[in-house]
């Protein structure tokens, strides 16, 4: 799953540490999310979407795996 988290975070003028603090997750989790190495739980995805006041599908882009 791809996401636009890094782009949105930078647009809000935040660094990873600040976003992690607000979402109560570790900075490494934010880094991994942005790199696409980790897919968040639905709860964290909602937290992120609510924080940025955006629909989830505008932040996380689901792509079907190539068969």
């Amino acid at each position: 799953m791809k996401n636009r988290l890094e782009e949105i975070r930078k647009k809000h003028g935040m660094n990873q540490e600040e976003l992690a603090d607000v979402l109560e997750v570790s900075r490494q989790t934010i880094g991994s999310l942005e790199n696409g190495r980790y897919n968040p739980s639905i709860i964290l995805a909602f937290k992120i979407a609510r924080y940025f006041d955006m629909p989830i599908e505008e932040i996380f882009l689901y792509e079907e795996e190539a068969k």
Partner: peptide
């Protein structure tokens, strides 16, 4: 506490 509760760390 955040590090301990963090979902990625738990995973």
């Amino acid at each position: 506490e955040i590090e301990n509760r963090d979902e990625r760390n738990r995973d």
